[in-house]
Design a protein around this nucleic acid. Sequence first.
RNA 1: CGGGGUGUAGUGCAACGGUAGCACGAAUCGUUUGGGACGAUUUAGUCCGAGUUCGAAUCUCGGCACCCCGACCA
Length: 414
Amino acid sequence: MLQSKLFYKTNKNKSALADSVSHDLLVRAGYIDQLMAGVYSFMPLGFRVLKNIEDIIRKNMEAIGGQELLLPVLQPKENWQKTGRWETLDILFKVKGSGDKEYAMGPTHEEVVTPLAKKMVFSYRDLPFSVFQIQTKFRDELRAKSGILRTREFLMKDLYSFHATQADFDAYYEKLAKVYTNIFKEVGIGKITHRTLASGGSFSKYSDEFQTITNAGEDIIYICKKCSTSINKEIKAEYPICPKCKANEFEEKKSIEVGNIFPLGTGFSKPFDLKFTDKDATDKPVLMGCYGIGLGRLMGAIVEASHDEKGIIWPKSVAPFLVHLIQLGTDKKITTSAQKLYKSLQMEHLEVLYDDRVKTPGEKFAESDLLGIPYRVVISEKTLAKNSVEVKERSKNSVKLVKISQLHKIFNYQ
RNA sequence: CGGGGUGUAGUGCAACGGUAGCACGAAUCGUUUGGGACGAUUUAGUCCGAGUUCGAAUCUCGGCACCCCGACCA
């Protein structure tokens, strides 16, 4: 991508919300744009990051057998009345269609996926299975806040699993928790993301949240100093000592919930009469689980966790580009070499943002730091004199001169 | 939803009830070119509606929007 053509603008002026570094950086660097409270556009740069996150999540969901589908956003009032949530779920967006017919804008999809499963499940032979989607959710938050971390419209991966026996459910639930751990590791926040015991809201006794430690968080978690078991403040009173190792010393941390998994039991299969005929010829309700990850929030959490005073530091796995090629100087010779290098990197299937603009070096460097692309490659008269380019990783301070012919060997995938 | 705050140029800020200004951005020209360069010229604004007043960005009322704290939170 030529930076001169990229649809974005950076801004030197701070525009931060008081409680969110990620909002400030993502807005200033041109990744996102706020349309109204709790609603954001993802600019080309931001959308690239979002898609990288999406790919990682999709790959992991497919790895545990999840089948991707797409459920409707617009949902009938009747289904929500069946579960009682039409009246009780205060974040539910309700819209009126013609003839005053009312609909819900999906904040989550149990009310859709459960009746759908009813059309597919008759026998224990039809179980287990899991389906997922990556789709925009709508929640009428009383108070949107912290930029991209708590919004009214957001992209979410939601997976639903269906089981014949508790043992099968339990095994799957644990398997999925492991996959979640892996996802957060892949996007670069593994070390600061904790599986956390939490309440299950109105659907289950408990749930497991994946909490990323950050100052911009809205949750408080207690981490056992001995075994790292983590407990959400909302249920901490029930656990004076660590349920795993019985120790009683905890560290208190602010955190943001980036994922949540719930055992639903028969909470949805009962109202929708989702049952199957078991081996013994009796009908039994299907056991369900649901598992969510908010993509935009995850993107925000990554920025909260990975930045410095100059800007964002993207982990390679989610960065909008791997390489930021910066041309200094406008001599024909430099331009020709830069263009040639740009093409050859593309031939290597590397994602390159090429700063071909006529700007002063200081401005280019400052903006490069703000954008946070993992590798900065500078090509200038100085480096060309040695048939080289200067390579600097955004996450490191050192720079090194690399022969152009050797450059492609530098980039570290993993 | 309770409480508080703020709405001024594209962005960030200033202006006692009395001529709306600064920085950044954008545009043109020239000089620059390894850490947000310099000069000149230019561009563009008081959220909406009522009221008080000789006069309102400023005071009052209403609306709308955004932000913060809390409550809430699959």
